[in-house]
Amino acid sequence: MRRILLYIIIGICPALIHGQDLQPSVPVEGATSVGTVVGLGRASQLDTYLSPLSYSGPQLSFLRETFHLTKRANRRLSFQTILQGAFSHTENATSTAYDWAGRLGFDAGWHYHWCPMPALRLMAGGMVGTDIGFLYNDRNRNNPAQGRLNADVSASVGARYRLRLFRQSFVLRYQACLPLAGAMFSPGYGQSYYEISQGNRDHNVVATWPGNAFSLWQMVNVDIPLRRYTLRLGYLDDIRQSHANHIKVHDISRSFLIGFVRHFRLLKKNEREEGGDLQ
């Protein structure tokens, strides 16, 4: 458990990493991969509490991921954390009103691995996560913004394929997460935040499942070894939706990602004293 907590901390606070760099390009068993990417894309947002119209515009995002292949289950169990943030500025179709949106989310989970062929690794597992965010409309008065808060359990599947080209080892990866059950905050259909602030509660915590909050997170990326670092290029398709309290919400974004990956191995005290045996 302490080790898991450590991986979570590494995922959130890069400055706290202690360990020894491994050679780049592919995850090493027992090592932790830490990937940091930034994304640029477009977002489409609808929140009928604020407006019946969809807004669209650019989105800037970041994603920090840790991936650790544990020794459990005959080295077939991995632990992953994802810290993701996004900020977007969108407008309606007539460019007469603008939305500002931001969110921050953290997910952690385990995957079981199968290796149907030496270069291919299939993964399936589950993740738990939480998101917090806001959507602000610069034109509305008494309903200018929406707060977002949700937590959920997701099913997650993925595949990694190691490809050798030009004497280098590239890793192709696909991963998809589908929230299966959770809870989210939502005001009532016509409920004002003034009422909520006065203590009026009206089904403001809503249970979610794919029938009322179908969301899907998909990412495909390629890791390209470059000397000391590994370059990561990717594409993220992030669909977040809900239909609760008669309020329809969608936040659909598609982004191109670029960043780098580093592989670390956490050393025990005696390994550190011996200089770290990284075979």
Binding site: P52, A124, A176, L178, F214, H250
Partner: peptide, 27 residues
């Protein structure tokens, strides 16, 4: 069994869909 979760995911995909609001023409 290993494909159970994939079947579950596929089923959820079918159940879900794009959440959108009725739109009107700008006329």
């Amino acid at each position: 069994k290993r494909y159970g979760i994939l079947i579950l995911l596929f089923g959820a995909l079918l159940l879900g869909g794009c959440v959108s609001e009725e739109t009107f023409e700008d006329t």
